[in-house]
């Protein structure tokens, strides 16, 4: 991004540039949390108490963990392949004549 002071007299111009949501893409949060859960559960399934009497003989932690690893990875991949483009400048709500007018600071 260029310095607005030097190249753009209208500060609104720089606000029209677009960038990706990056780390604050909710899919990365979901992918990371489900992925870590997947790692923990897979380890529990391999090394922890399998509690077969509760699950009816299925290694529930292991299976759930593996599925969560796949789901977590899928979210991360989706976020990587189709990043969200965040428009810096979101259209202002037009003034409603019946509404008490809020006076905005900063003028955008």
């Amino acid at each position: 991004m260029t310095d607005p002071e030097l190249t753009a007299p209208d500060p609104d111009d720089t606000r029209l540039t677009r960038h990706t949501a990056g780390a604050f893409d909710i899919r990365n949060f979901i992918g990371a949390l489900i992925g870590i859960y997947g790692v923990v559960l897979t380890l529990m399934g391999l090394f922890g108490d399998k509690a077969y009497e509760k699950t009816g003989g299925v290694n529930a932690n292991l299976w759930a963990g593996l599925v969560m690893l796949v789901v977590g990875a899928a979210f991360m991949t989706w976020a990587r392949l189709r990043p969200i483009i965040v428009p810096d400048h979101v259209g202002r709500v037009l003034d409603d004549p019946t509404r008490p007018a809020p006076r905005r600071r900063g003028g955008h």
Partner: peptide, 24 residues
């Protein structure tokens, strides 16, 4: 954003519960 995250955590919580319960 938290509601979206919560949705997936809720599914991750209840889906295995349902499947294991049905298995039992």
């Amino acid at each position: 954003y938290n509601e979206v995250l919560q949705f997936f955590v809720i599914v991750a919580a209840l889906l295995p519960l349902t499947l294991i319960g049905l298995h039992r």
